[in-house]
Structures are given as structure tokens and as C-alpha cells.
């Protein structure tokens, strides 16, 4: 079975986000970029499936700017076998919408015929939480979102999902799209020898047109602003003072 893993290049999760003065978005120029943390978990899961003999090839794909090849090299260094880069924009500030990403991924799925697509549940930039579900919809496949456990049993995947009240386990027909949540695994670090080896692994460069997809956004950004700041509070000296303040504020 082949596993396809889409990965997104996003602002590093440790970087403090700054809104651009013109309100068009968040400043990404000269900012450290990394693989979306949820996508690291899906790459790790795909590699573990291969190590367990349940997958025979892990293909990673990224859709965005040309620099996303660094993100793909990271995934290759972790242990993915080959990569596909779909250059969909030359502007790092142009975030390709999940619907467009899902359409391009569908084109790749049609070509590659994977048995499983493993996605991060959301990207930490636009926080949409949509690409996996949309891809599944376009393919007419089953979906299992927010996975904290993934098992393959013949032509079914058994997936435990993180839901509001606790956990839900479902069994879905393969091929399927699984989106992963935080507790599924802890991604490995790439070793130096593997980083060197990853430079020689195949990386195909494509365009959206190769999959018959036109890149256009359905959501126009009207403005982007900093969130309203909270007024500064006070430091209390003791538990007694805290209780008094809470009573004063009518909070207890």
C-alpha cells in the first residue's frame, strides 16, 4: 500500500506572529518557516506504517511556494521515500485555500492511487481544519478525522478519534483519508546521515495546471487586525486578597 502525506510550510510555531500594517495578513517575510506540526505527526505515522510492513511507499506532497521543497526535504529526511512539489504561487503571502489544495491533491491521488492519505487535522496558519475532509468529499471516500490511534485491518482502517466528549472509534473503508491529532505519536528528528541521504531522494516539481486545477481564492481578505488586548490586571499579595477581589468582582 502506498501512503500519501500532504505537508504544509507554515510559520514556525515558536515565532511571534505580527500582523502586516496594510491589514492584508500576517508578515511572513524573513520569518522562520517549518513543517506544520500536525503534518509532522502524519509523516511520522506513515513512516511507522512502512516500518511495520503495512505500507510499502510513503509519498509526501506540498502545495505552495517553491521554498516548500525544504519542508519536503525534511519529510524525506524523516523517512519518506519521494516527494511531489506543486508550485501554486510565487508569493509566500498567498495562502492556497483548502478547497484548491484538495482539488490538486485529488489529481495526485488519481495518479498515485494511494490506499491511505494521512493529513494533519489543521494548519496552524489559517486554522481551517478542512483539507482532509474536502479531499475525502471530492474523492467520495470515507474519512476519519482527529485520529489518536490508527490501525489497518485488511481493507478497513480502525481509527480512534479525539472528539468533544472523549474518544470515538470508527471503522472506515479503505482507501480513506485520515486526519491526525496531537496524541497520535511523537515525530522523530531526522538524523544527519538521513538529512544527507534525503538530498538524493526524488522530488518531482509540478504545477496546478498539471492536474487541471486553476488557483483562485473564494474568500477575499478584507482586513487582518491584531486581536483586542486585555486590560492589564493586578497582582495580589495573598490568597486572602485574591478571595476578597473575587468577591468584590462578584465572581464567587
Amino acid at each position: 500500500m502506498k501512503v500519501l502525506v500532504p505537508v504544509k510550510r507554515v510559520i514556525d510555531y515558536n515565532v511571534k506572529v505580527r500582523v502586516k500594517a496594510d491589514g492584508s495578513g500576517v508578515d511572513l517575510a524573513n520569518v522562520k518557516m517549518s513543517m506544520n506540526p500536525f503534518d509532522e505527526i502524519s509523516v511520522e505515522q506513515a513512516i511507522r506504517l512502512k516500518e511495520a510492513g503495512q505500507a510499502d511507499e510513503v509519498v509526501v506532497v506540498s502545495i505552495g511556494v517553491k521554498q516548500a521543497q525544504e519542508t519536503l526535504r525534511t519529510a524525506l529526511a524523516m523517512g519518506a521515500d519521494r516527494a511531489i512539489l506543486v508550485v501554486a504561487t510565487d508569493d509566500v503571502h498567498n495562502d492556497i485555500e483548502p478547497l484548491t489544495v484538495a482539488k490538486i491533491l485529488k489529481g495526485i491521488v488519481d495518479e498515485e492511487q494511494p490506499g491511505l492519505v494521512l493529513c494533519g487535522k489543521q494548519a496552524i496558519d489559517n486554522d481551517m481544519n478542512a483539507t482532509g475532509q474536502m479531499l475525502s468529499a471530492l474523492l467520495g471516500w470515507s474519512q476519519a478525522t482527529f485520529a489518536s490511534e490508527v490501525g489497518i485491518e485488511g481493507d478497513k482502517a480502525v481509527v480512534t478519534r479525539e472528539v468533544d466528549g472523549g474518544l470515538q472509534t470508527i471503522k472506515v473503508n479503505m482507501p480513506t483519508v485520515v486526519t491526525v491529532d496531537l496524541r497520535l505519536n511523537e515525530p522523530r528528528y531526522a538524523s544527519l546521515p538521513n538529512i544527507m541521504k534525503a538530498k538524493k531522494k526524488p522530488l518531482d516539481e509540478k504545477t496546478p495546471a498539471d492536474y487541471g486545477v486553476e488557483v483562485s481564492n473564494r474568500l477575499e481578505i478584507i482586513k487582518t487586525v491584531e486581536p483586542a488586548a486585555r486590560a492589564a490586571g493586578i497582582t495580589v499579595a495573598s490568597v486572602d486578597e485574591l478571595v476578597a477581589k473575587l468577591k468584590e468582582a462578584g465572581a464567587v
Binding site: P98, N129, A130, M134, R218
Partner: peptide, 19 residues
């Protein structure tokens, strides 16, 4: 909710609209 996030993005995909 988690249920709605699971379902509604699929609905949007089926309707060819952005969520």
C-alpha cells in the same frame, strides 16, 4: 464542535465551496 468540523468541511467539499 468536533462533530461539526468533521461534517461541515465535507459538506463544503461536496458543494464546491470554501468553508
Amino acid at each position: 464542535t468536533t462533530d461539526a468540523k468533521n461534517v461541515m468541511a465535507r459538506v463544503a467539499g461536496l458543494l464546491d465551496v470554501m468553508i
